[in-house]
Design a protein around this nucleic acid. Sequence first.
RNA 1: GUGGGUGUAGCUCAGGAGGUUAGAGCACCAGAUUGUGGCUCUGGGGGCCGUGGGUUCGAGUCCCAUCAUCCACCCCA
Length: 426
Amino acid sequence: MIVLTKAPRGTRDILPDEVEQWQFFEEKVRALCRLFGYAEIRTPVFEHTELFLRGVGEVTDIVAKEMYTFTDRGDRSLTLRPEGTAPVARAYLEHKLYGEAQPLKVYYIEPMFRYDRPQAGRYRQFHQFGVEVFGAMEPSLDAEVMMLSLHLFRALGLGEFSLQLNSVGCPLCRAAYRACLQEELKEKVNSFCPDCTGRFHKNPLRILDCKHEVCQELTVGVSLMIDNLCGDCAEHFAAVREAMDALGESYVVNPRLVRGLDYYTKTAFEIVSPVLGAQSSLCGGGRYDHLLAAIGGPDVPGIGFGIGVERVLLARAAAGCSPPVSKSIDVFVATAGNVSAAEALRVVMDLRAEGVAADKDFLGRSLKAQFKFADKKQAKYLVILGDEEIKRGQVMLRDMQTGSQTDVALAELTSMVAKLVKGAKK
RNA sequence: GUGGGUGUAGCUCAGGAGGUUAGAGCACCAGAUUGUGGCUCUGGGGGCCGUGGGUUCGAGUCCCAUCAUCCACCCCA
């Protein structure tokens, strides 16, 4: 039975209290992207299913079992986007952005959808902050992209995380390596875990990244992609490392790091957090030099990453990062006696007109209850508007932190409070 | 998709081997001299005990199913 009072499985509401964390994250992202020269892009929440089949790869898990696909009334097969790169690549081609000054550097913070079994740090609707750069092959760009993600984590106060770096080669050297790896492993294929016996044919590189100890032991000393790169890929990888070294940035070369999506080439990286559970990957990215060609465009290179917003927020909480300061109201206008709610609203609107965040009671509560409410809302000041005050033309202004009170002429209240509030912000 | 844990008030949880009107803390609301928050005290509102079925004289408690949730695998952010 469908419960109407519950959000669908794997989805959740972000309530006002938590939204502050999200806005904090978004502010850091926007500031950094501006600093790094990345412009925001927004693409539709669904695309033609075919885009993901071609762009992500038909044998990947995302396409094989995790897509939210539906047919619309015009009999089109559409899919809620499971990742951000293919849609942005599509937009790049559709609007012929390769005709503009290159490279094109864009970012997005948008919801993604994957029909997966929910777990810690994994949801069916989740959010990714991602960047994509099209039209440049230079290794220093790979370094810049990684730097952006590292800087974001630091700006967010995340202390512990590690950057894992690898090169997955290009179609040429990877195909040759893949064949050589299969040759080396074929004797042991029956000793691997059930998952890896399957991987042997589907994606033998993935065996190297298996969590099972047996598989790890069986692959000790086996040839690695990193040692079998073609000249071009090896040179690129060395240059990326050189750029990172020059920046004094530490990273771990992990030759067993594999990307799940088909379109990755050369640089592959991942940033993992030790404070999360099994879903410890905060950021995954890399180069995809032939994705554009795969979906019918010119053979323009690209690079990007995706960062899981929920996971970053989870990691912040787990690491005990202090929450962002909550945005409370400046003034609460309380009424007493026969002063009408309409009169209070007029004062509140006057304050707001001066840029003072003001609020009032809307439940006809007692003065005491209004005080409690103002306290709960962490109002910095409270104004009492009572019969006495109206008569004298003086209202009482109370500093809620210190408890001190002063009389202020009603006519001067707005400018007075505006000055107080602005002074405190500096 | 696979395996395991858990579903009692808004939240965190109690409810000995089935037996009266299901409890606590926090939160919420009201009051403690008729116009003053935080601390304290008093009172109050709130629960299809996740849902459906079964066993029983009797089920929050036992059994089955289902849904949800959590953890892990797979995969990934």
